[in-house]
């Protein structure tokens, strides 16, 4: 196919099947935002540098601006919209709220998705701060309160595991 040929892509998004009509060149970020209406995934650089567009694809955090939608055929994608259980936010989201880990909120969904993927993969708190948060740009918070939120979220998640 060429860049502008149209193609139907089928994938699973937040647990539900999704079929979108895209061009070969359509970025996954654009397909999610403008094809599926999932505008919680934000695009801030389209250069793979900032991490705002991060989604979880087959369990891994990926930058949806660096992937073509057609590459996501048959995959399972999770976006920020799929995290909360009804009105109940995910532990990472709750920790960001408690610790004032967001201001304008534009980079936030990408950071949250990276941290959720890291937590699920059993990442240590040090790696979550150094490696995972280290891959994101935030212009508002100076990262101080995001690091506090990571510590808080990891404490909650670890506590939860011990309870089980």
């Amino acid at each position: 196919m060429t860049a502008t040929d149209h193609r139907r892509v089928e994938l699973t998004v937040n647990g539900a099947p999704l079929a979108v009509e895209v061009e070969g060149r359509t970025l996954l970020s654009d397909a999610l935002r403008h094809g599926a209406g999932l505008t919680g995934t934000h695009v801030a650089c389209e250069q793979g540098a900032c991490g705002a567009c991060t989604v979880v694809l087959d369990g891994r955090a990926v930058r949806s601006c660096l992937m073509l939608a057609v590459q996501a055929e048959g995959t399972e994608v999770r976006t920020v919209e799929g995290l909360a259980d009804g009105a109940s936010l995910h532990a990472v989201q709750e920790a960001m709220h408690r610790n004032h880990g967001l201001q304008c909120g534009f980079c936030t969904p990408g950071i949250v998705m990276s941290l959720v993927a890291a937590a699920e993969a059993g990442c240590t708190i040090d790696d979550a701060v150094d490696e995972v948060l280290g891959g994101h740009l935030c212009r508002c918070t100076g990262y101080v309160n995001i690091r506090a939120a990571v510590a808080d979220a990891w404490a909650v998640l670890d506590g939860g595991e011990e309870d089980r």
């Binding site: 505008t39 920020v80 709220h97 909120g105 534009f106 936030t108």
Partner: peptide
């Protein structure tokens, strides 16, 4: 804690 947070955290901000 900020009253505007839950919406932004859930990806329901509108930019």
């Amino acid at each position: 804690p900020r009253l505007e947070d839950p919406r932004l955290l859930a990806g329901r901000g509108r930019y």
